[in-house]
């Protein structure tokens, strides 16, 4: 029986080493160690931010790889092995309590991140992320630089768009609050500007809108819609004060379409993020109704339109224009190719 101990020691060791060879060494030497089309090296401040990311365990809630079935941030591009070129260590992560960050660069503005790192509830009221004020101003700046680099060259492209409109937004704000609103409205495509709310502002709609407002908007725009939420001190240009919008109704009546468009697409370059991945159409109309009824004291959902009402709206549906005379659609116009 003496031989059995040799079999256990050397035999089992052989199996373990063979497994290392087959499932680690072999795949590893066969992986092409090349950067992907979007990869770029990190700059020194981004590298510093990456170390803060590791030290504070961000990877336990934020994955950094997009899977084929994903819908959220970054779903436009499934991760490739070359995206992780020269990353030591890898930060793929195993949990997604918070969103995936592999394409987060340029998704939000720097000042959104600033407020968010001070306390994530400031910009995302239902967030479970820890507050990171303790890492200090310099640390937060490095962390922002790192986050904005995620996605490599694609992130740089998104940041270029952010920066371009950031300048435009600041210039508009510095011309005064009313000029700021006028600029914001000028950045909404024409059909949306003259579109009244497409969902009746019923009591139920406003109540649903209130819930959406509290889950998404309250941190910046504040509980009374004056743009003085807890995130406001960190954000420039500051969040819009909804109560001033009464001075800016289009033709003295419309505002619903503008609110919808800006909630849906956000205002790139400012801290206002897009919400079209988070919120379905009905919820965007509902929160628009809530803002109108509570903060602007206006309703544009009764303005007649040629649209065919949705059946559930029943007696709440907006009046239908009598004898609508729709203009024939011109070929070559309205974006039809």
């Amino acid at each position: 029986m003496r031989s059995s101990e040799a079999i256990i020691v050397w035999g089992s060791l052989l199996v373990v080493v063979a497994a290392m060879f087959a499932t680690v060494y072999w795949p590893v030497i066969n992986i092409r160690d090349e950067p992907s089309d979007i990869w770029r090296p990190l700059q020194s401040q981004e590298e510093k931010g990456r170390l803060i990311y590791i030290a504070n365990g961000c990877t336990y809630c934020h994955s950094q790889y997009i899977r084929p079935q994903d819908w959220g941030i970054g779903a436009e591009r499934i991760s490739q092995s070359g995206d992780y070129y020269r990353q030591i260590p890898h930060l793929l992560g195993s949990q997604r309590t918070g969103p995936d960050l592999s394409q987060e660069g340029g998704e939000h503005s720097d000042d959104w991140h600033r407020a968010h790192f001070i306390n994530p509830r400031f910009t995302r009221p239902r967030s479970l992320m820890p507050a990171f004020a303790y890492i200090g101003e310099e640390g937060i700046e490095s962390l922002i630089a790192y986050i904005q680099s995620l996605g490599g060259k694609d992130a740089d492209q998104r940041m270029a768009v952010q920066n371009r409109f950031h300048e435009e937004a600041i210039a508009a704000w510095e011309r005064g609050p009313d000029e700021h609103i006028r600029w914001l409205h000028s950045r909404v495509p024409q059909p949306w500007r003259i579109m009244p709310s497409e969902t009746p502002a019923t009591r139920a709609s406003v109540a649903r809108g209130e819930k959406v407002y509290q889950d998404y908007c309250i941190g910046c725009h504040g509980p009374v819609g004056d743009g003085a939420g807890p995130a406001a001190p960190y954000i420039y240009p500051p969040p819009v004060n909804f109560t001033t919008l009464r001075r800016h109704l289009i033709d003295g009546q419309y505002i619903g379409g503008i609110l919808y468009y800006q909630i849906m697409n956000g205002i790139t370059g400012t801290a206002m993020p897009y919400h079209k991945k988070d919120l379905e159409s009905a919820k965007i109309w509902d929160v628009g109704n809530y803002i109108m009824v509570n903060f602007i004291n206006v309703r544009d959902d009764r303005i007649p339109s040629a649209g065919i009402p949705v059946s559930y709206e029943g007696r709440h549906a907006k009046p239908v224009t009598k004898n609508p005379q729709p203009e024939p659609i011109q070929p070559g116009k309205g974006g039809v190719r």
């Binding site: 290392m20 680690v24 590893v28 890898h90």
Partner: peptide
């Protein structure tokens, strides 16, 4: 000190 390989290779090492 880093105690890690580079890139996706590191993920294969880690999960083994």
């Amino acid at each position: 000190r880093p105690g890690a390989m580079s890139g996706i290779t590191d993920a294969i090492f880690l999960w083994f």
